[in-house]
Amino acid sequence: MRSTQLRRLRRAIGAAALVGVAATAWLGLVVTPPAEFFGNLVRLLYVHPSMAWVAFLAFGVTTLASALYLWRRTRRPAWDLLAAASAEVGVVFTGLTLVTGSIWGRPTWGVWWTWDALLTATAVLFLLYLGYLALRRVPMSEERRGVRSAVWALIAFVDVPIINQSVYWWRTLHQRPSLSIGPTNAVEVHGIMAVALAVSFVSFTLTWVWMVWVRFDLARRQRALEQLELAHAIAERLESVEAGS
């Protein structure tokens, strides 16, 4: 009963996310006007910041779930699965953030990539979480993988402020204060543009919730299946014991 309700809720979130993303596309591409200075490029503004937000949200959730898993009193396999699901989606959105940022950079700055502080820090974050996913692929027992990837997530989390600080100094000390940091600083947002931006934030967040939920559910089912197979194996082994006596 409860599970069907949950499934319905999940489906509703998925549908809402789909509608929201479609609405973002419509608002961003058709309804809003091109900006005075940036022209049609400004339309990236409706997706790029919300993608970055989802990426950070995802890694925040991964960190939190990992901490909960590491702490013995709150250790449940579910936290581990949640951390993994959220990290996977986070990597996708970090990648999208970098790609859309790059598309923005080419016409505005004339280059696909610039070693801007925020960009560099995001790229390192992307690499850190690629490492997280790679670590999860190393064959080891379920609990060991849980503990180790959680430790890794915390090490990465501790690293983020240090990376930010160092790349910020790197790009600002003894250098001309570089190009504006992100698209948002350069454009004035008002009216229908603000609406489009808000819709995009909400719909991308919903997309994240839906994706993590689906991924989490899948992982949980996989786990249940494995345990079922285990139960069979135990039963078989016991039978052979009985037969031997």
Partner: peptide, 9 residues
């Protein structure tokens, strides 16, 4: 892969 990003600072 694990070490280099962490020690990049």
């Amino acid at each position: 892969l694990l070490t280099l990003p962490v020690v990049s600072p």
